[in-house]
Design a protein around this nucleic acid. Structure first.
Lengths: 133, 133
DNA sequence: TATTGTTATACTCTATAACTATA
DNA sequence: TATAGTTATAGAGTATAACAATA
């Protein structure tokens, strides 16, 4: 079972990466922007969300800021920041999500509607469990 | 649908990467070894299988060779090689696959048996279609 | 001439350890 | 003293373009 999920994850990641290449956005940057959509985490929270070390997030946010897609916003604690998307960053992530969906829909297009609906429900349950647990 | 599959792929990849960290193997190396299991492709075929450029494969195989996990084998065409796992490489990939499975089983452990079976069948169909088409 | 693979270059991503500024 | 984030350093992964050797 896990082996099949790993194979699937590489397949889906290849769609994600092709989209990145088509849009000129490195994958880790695309991931960062996706995580920032609807959130304004601190650097440490962002590290947790993306699953990397704080020092790595410094570089990721540096590059996103240089591209004008995210910004560091000061907070009361003067050691910390919140990171948020810029207007341009919001547009980029929305366009990216649409582009991934367009490419990715082909993966499930051959499935009967009932199977696709079932897959959607089961995947949703896995994600919910992982997010809570 | 695609959005859920992308989220799932990041979740599964995080399991994969945790396993890599636990075993001291960089993710791209683990990917390379997994692709080599049961195959001995040329460098160009390997690039196709992994989904990167030839120049990138040169570096990946260089590092795998330095670790004693894979080797370049000469073929009749003296410009080319076939790449194969060493004995040690075969052991490493088998251990890795088991370690990923152990961690990954937790993702689907909460599902009813019927859902897990259905998921397995549907994912298999997606993979088969992607491999052929 | 065309193909196979490597080298050169530049950039991104990543972790660890040491550090600065603030709490 | 403890915490938030950065800097320094080193290694890995990636693509593009130019290249060498062989077909």
């Amino acid at each position: 079972m896990t082996d099949a999920l790993v194979q699937l994850s590489f397949l889906v990641q290849s769609v994600f990466e092709e989209t990145c290449a088509a849009q000129g956005t490195p994958p880790a940057q695309a991931r960062l922007l996706g995580v920032l959509e609807g959130r304004d985490p601190t650097m440490a929270e962002l590290a947790q969300l993306v699953g990397v070390e704080c020092a790595t997030v410094t570089g990721l946010v540096d590059r996103a800021e240089r591209r004008g897609l995210a910004r560091r916003v000061p907070v009361a604690d003067r050691r910390a920041f919140r990171v948020e998307l810029t207007g341009q960053g919001g547009q980029v992530v929305a366009a990216f999500r649409a582009a991934v969906a367009e490419r990715g829909d082909g993966l499930t297009a051959q499935l009967p509607e009932a199977d696709r609906a079932h897959l959607c429900r089961v995947v949703g349950r896995i994600l919910t469990r992982a997010a809570s647990g």
